[in-house]
Structures are given as structure tokens and as C-alpha cells.
Design a protein around this nucleic acid. Structure first.
Length: 422
RNA sequence: GGAGAGAUGGCAGAGUGGUUAAUUGCGACGGUCUUGAAAACCGUUGAGGGUUUACUUCCUCCGAGGGUUCGAAUCCCUCUCUCUCCGCCA
């Protein structure tokens, strides 16, 4: 959520930047500003009434001590006169704050100055040039599973419909090994591990920006008014609600493994073969909370971190900067990391790393105290996948296949306990 | 699910209608002392929102939302959460 003080000082800039997103409800900006002016007016009048009342009330207290009861009624009557007016103003103020809030919630974060509206070659920051094959005609994973019994989608659909996968035997263990491996690396680079609930309430979804934007992409449990998490970012970030950090204690770095649940409603065209896109998938997530001046550095740091993990697995990859219209609701700038599957001849997104600046922290109320000035300011929040499991799994299976077996990357063997799937 | 207790500042913990943003302790920060540190002593120490060019000044906030009252941390109602005991259960 953007701050009103920020909007009123940067109206032109915000309008310009939001256009990069193709944001339709641009009129909300001016509406909010107008309402805020109104709010200030009301607040001002109310404050003055309250001040008068406070003074009179204190007077009554003093008179009571001195037993001067005869003067009391006179003062009391004065107070009663303003009582209705006070009530009315309080209600007005409350209503207007509610409306402003509703409007603010519906305004996404403004894109960074480096974010373009349209895709061009400048959006590709890095791309692997040579991609080597181990076999001549590599099979896609849905063919490989017929040979090696890796996973079973029909079992999944038997119990809960399409888009749910059952992993079997060594593939199940490979998947678990990946989770363990990613967590271990994250921890090694001082991300603190959290194990979190997979259900969240409405407030948590609003604070990280999934609601109202992605509300119907989430599974909702009507009985208890809870959502299944679409990403570990939501509960992880919500751990830090209402905190004021000392600048010295920043950055906060945290990681978590969670399954992610997504309805993928409306994405018929992308209903893809195999396990490229599922309603439930595993992901290891990293987040950082920084001061406003360090978020850029943290973003680069996180990209490098994820990049190194992919390199350790020897997977071909590329890094893209997302365009404005592709940007997530809370993000000001996002980099996607994609790995290349030689069997599918396709790039698969395995990580999305975003700087949400102070958009989430405004909602979450995460702040820090400046070392020098002692001033309190909103933190910046960042999140990234490190990494999404199924697509890494897919690419490993497909890129590491030979005619007789699937090899396991060296770094994973200590975790799997086997060096190939036959 | 049943019964009871509770929710106050970074933490601990007083406060049951009248200068109470709130005693006190701890922590943190600054200072005195010290070669340095500790101890001791002194001082500072919540957030949000109006107003003002600024100095200033005012308002709101004691889990959340209502109510009573001239006046609410304190009384009443509703909700949320936490703890203890019992029940059920991995």
C-alpha cells in the first residue's frame, strides 16, 4: 500500500509510473488525495472540539476537589452542547478513513524507473549460450516417467483432480533432497529458517498484496475464513508485522520451505503437460527486510545467491527483468530466473525475485530506526524463490538423462544417497 | 468442545472514574568517575495524526470495536487472542 503523504508529494511521478503497468484505475490517485484533504479538515475541527472538552473536564475535576458544586452544572452543560457534534465528526472521520483505505488497497506498487512497459532485448540480462545434451533425443519428463516410474499425475487426479502430482520412490526422495539442499545453502548464507502455517487469514493476505489482487487464485476455506498459502512469502513476511528494528539489526534474512497452493483459475491456455504447472507445488523461499537505501543491494545479492545455486546444479539459465504489465502487485522491480529444458526446448521460470520497496511494510507496519537521526522510517521488503522445486526437478530429469538412466548432480548425491535413477 | 484466569510501553509489572502517556524494575542510549572496563551515581528513552516556514502546540492510542459519563487503562456490552485445568486426538 502506498502512503498518502508519498502520493501527495509525488503525484505526477506516480501517475507516470503506474501507466507502465497498464494500471486501469488511475483515477484512484486523485480520489484519494481529495478525500485526504477532506479528512484533514474534519480532523482539525474535531481536534479543536476535543481540546475544549479536555480543558473543561479537567476544570470539573479540580472544582470537585474544592467542593464547588454550584459551578459544575454550568460547565457540564457546555460540554453536552458539543457532544452530538463530536459524535457526528467522529463517525465522519471513521467513514472517510475506511473509504480512503479501500481505495489505497486497490492501488499497486509503482514500478521502478528501470522497468519498461514493453519487452525488448534489454530485458534479458543474462542468457546461457552453449547448452549441451547428453543424449540425441531427450525425452520430456512425462515420457521419462513411463520408463523410470518417477511420478503419477493420474493418481493425483484420482484423489483431488487434475494438477496434482504424486512423486514416487527415488523421485520422491530427489524432490525432498532438493528442498533440503536449498534450505541448507540459504541457511549457510545466514537466512534464518522458519517452519510456518500453510493457512493464512485475510489480513495476512492483504498485507503482502495477494488480496485484493490474487484473491481468487487462492484456495479459500469457507468454514474458518482461511486461505491456503500461494507462497511461503505470505506467512514468512507476516512474522515481522508491527516491528521496529534498529538499523544495525538490518538486513533481516529469512527462509522457509512450504508447499504452495494455486488455483490457476482462468489460465486455461497454460494448462500444460506434466508437472510444469501444478495446483500444489513445493518451494523454498527467501526474504530480506532492509533499510530503504539498501534494498537495491539486497536485490542484487539475492539474484546472485539464486544464480549460484542454479550454477551448482549445472543447469542452463537466463535472467529476465519483468516489464511493467507483468509485475506483481506489490513489486516495484522483479527479476525472473529461468532454466532451460532441452527436452521441452523451453525456458521454465524457477525463481522470481522482487523488491517490494515499502509497499508491503507500510501495510505490515515494519519500520526501522535510523542510526544517526533516530528517525523512524518504513523498511523495504524483498522476496525470491530459492527455488521452486518441480521445475528444477523437471529440468534435472530431462537434462541429466542418458539412454539408460538419469544422473544425479554431484552436489545432491550426499542428500539422495544414490547417484542415478535407473 | 467444557470450566476458569488474563491481555498495559523493547521486556517485566503497578495502576479500578479526575493533570495518568501512565509508578517502578530491567534493558537500551548519553554523561560523571576510571589507564580501560565493571560497579556506583546522574540524565534520556513509545507510536500515529493535525497545526506552524520554524520554534511551538494540539489530538488519538493501555488487545479490537461499540456504550455509559462533563471525564474511561479503570464501569458495561460484543469480538479476537493468550494461559491453566478437563475432554477429544496426531
Amino acid at each position: 500500500m502506498l502512503r498518502i503523504s508519498f502520493i501527495s508529494k509525488n503525484r505526477e511521478k506516480i501517475l507516470f509510473r503506474l501507466k507502465k503497468r497498464n494500471f486501469k484505475k488511475i483515477y484512484l490517485i486523485d480520489e484519494v488525495l481529495l478525500l485526504d484533504k477532506k479528512r484533514k479538515k474534519i480532523q482539525n475541527i474535531l481536534n479543536k472540539i476535543l481540546e475544549k472538552e479536555n480543558i473543561l473536564s479537567k476544570k470539573i475535576g479540580k472544582l470537585l476537589i474544592k467542593n464547588k458544586n454550584y459551578e459544575l452544572n454550568d460547565i457540564k452543560n457546555k460540554c453536552i452542547l458539543s457532544k452530538n457534534k463530536k459524535k457526528k465528526l467522529k463517525k465522519e472521520l471513521k467513514d472517510i478513513l475506511f473509504i480512503i483505505n479501500q481505495k489505497l488497497i486497490n492501488i499497486p506498487n509503482i514500478p521502478d524507473k528501470y522497468v519498461n512497459k514493453n519487452f525488448d532485448k534489454n530485458n534479458i540480462l543474462f542468457k546461457e549460450k552453449k547448452i549441451k545434451k547428453l543424449v540425441n533425443n531427450p525425452l520430456p519428463h512425462w515420457e521419462l516417467t513411463k520408463k523410470f516410474n518417477l511420478f503419477d499425475l493420474s493418481l493425483g487426479s484420482k484423489m483431488c483432480g487434475t494438477g496434482f502430482s504424486v512423486y514416487i520412490d527415488k523421485c520422491a526422495k530427489l524432490q525432498r533432497s532438493l528442498i533440503q539442499y536449498f534450505l541448507d545453502i540459504n541457511i549457510k548464507y545466514s537466512y534464518k529458517e522458519y517452519n510456518l502455517p500453510y493457512l493464512i487469514n485475510e489480513m495476512s493476505g492483504i498485507s503482502t498484496g495477494q488480496i485484493p489482487d490474487k484473491e481468487n487464485q487462492m484456495y479459500f476455506i469457507e468454514n474458518d475464513k482461511l486461505y491456503l498459502i500461494p507462497t511461503g512469502e505470505v506467512p514468512l513476511m507476516n512474522c515481522y508485522r508491527d516491528k521496529i528494528f534498529n538499523e544495525n539489526d538490518l538486513p533481516i534474512k529469512a527462509t522457509t520451505y512450504t508447499p504452495c497452493f494455486r488455483r490457476e483459475a482462468g489460465s486455461y491456455g497454460t494448462k500444460s503437460k506434466g508437472i510444469n504447472r501444478l495446483h500444489q507445488f513445493d518451494k523454498v523461499e527467501i526474504i530480506q527486510i532492509t533499510s530503504s537505501k539498501n534494498s537495491n543491494y539486497a536485490l542484487k545479492n539475492m539474484i546472485l545467491h539464486v544464480k549460484n545455486i542454479i550454477i551448482s546444479l549445472n543447469l542452463p539459465f537466463r535472467i529476465l527483468r519483468l516489464t511493467g504489465p507483468d509485475l506483481g502487485y506489490s513489486s516495484s522491480i522483479t527479476y525472473d530466473i529461468e532454466v532451460y529444458s532441452i527436452a521441452q526446448k523451453k525456458w521454465l521460470e524457477v525463481s522470481s525475485i522482487s523488491n517490494c520497496t515499502n509497499f508491503q511494510s507500510n501495510r505490515l507496519n515494519i519500520k526501522y530506526k535510523n542510526n544517526v537521526t533516530g528517525e523512524i522510517a518504513l523498511c523495504h521488503t524483498l522476496n525470491g524463490s530459492s527455488l521452486a522445486i518441480p521445475r528444477i526437478l523437471v529440468t534435472l530429469l530431462e537434462n541429466y538423462q542418458t539412454n539408460y538412466q538419469i544422473n544425479i548432480p554431484k552436489v545432491l548425491i550426499p542428500y539422495t544417497g544414490f547417484d542415478s535413477i535407473k
